[in-house]
Design a protein around this nucleic acid. Sequence first.
DNA 1: AAGCCGGGGTT
DNA 2: AACCCAGGCTT
Length: 345
Amino acid sequence: MVFSNIILAWYGTNKRALPWRNTLDPYRIWLSEIMLQQTRVAQGTPYYHKFISAFPKVEDLANADEEVVLKLWQGLGYYSRARNLHATAKIVVEKYGGNFPNTYKELLTLKGVGDYTASAIASICFNEAVPVVDGNVYRVLSRYYGMDLPINSPEGIKEFKKLAIKVMAPKNIRDYNQGIMEFGALQCTPQKPDCQTCPLNISCIAYNNDSISSLPVKLKKTKVKHRYFNYLVVVDANNQTLVQQRTGNGIWRQLYEFPLLESDQEVALPEVSKSAPELLGVQEDAEVYLYNDKNIVHKLSHQHLHTKFWIVSTTTILENGVPLSTLPEYPVPVLIADFINTFKI
DNA sequence: AAGCCGGGGTT
DNA sequence: AACCCAGGCTT
């Protein structure tokens, strides 16, 4: 039996009933694919429902305020996906009359749509014979065909794409693409794959070489950078505080946070008491105290944020202050959302 | 070609 | 603590 036929057969009996599997609507498929980039199905699914409910059609998403989109995206991470999602919705409405492009090549021009996502939409919605090569596919192909090229090297990317084209099922690419990904997610898992019940084990090179655990090969590891965040949570006599929007190219662009004092190392109370009032534009006699006794270490994939929240209580009435009660309306990073949820004066 | 961009689940 | 997740963009 051929590889692709086994994948198709396996998919037929093992596929999950996922919310985006009952439609071929490009809007819904696109939305699900963007949300699932580097994101597990279980984590993305609630967001898919929220978005479909808030924005049933691409026009609804295009017409929404960016801040509303970011707020709905809050907690899902990689927030550039939300900004690109919104931009692409506008393009689809304005340039394509509300209809998504129907070819891999044209889909590739959309913001936030790369090789994988263009292939996924083209194959699932339009049955175009282009293979998806995501993390699941790298794993399945590297093991079954014994490919030990690093999956994140330029040669590896090229060779795995060639192999993926060679072994795909062009006549039923829609099910094959979803099938090989589902197979990677459920059967050929990163750790402890279920090789005993695997329909491909007899001809799987890695299984027969006992090299399952060493495939796929991936280069380098991300070095974690340590940063020290001091958030200044000012509270004035009217229960107002200050928030600001992050700019630049770093983390959490366009999300909101409290005024931030970043330092190379830990900062102590006297230093904060001295600099906070002027930085916030409040009176010198403001009362400053540390809210969290121990550092909150917020872990991103490439940064550890050692965070202290400082409460700055002042009699000054903030001119640009916002009521504390409105904080839940702002799109914020999880680090800030967690604080807001527990903060009681 | 390499680095950056989140948050959460598994082991 | 390390690894990975239905990757893409920037430099």
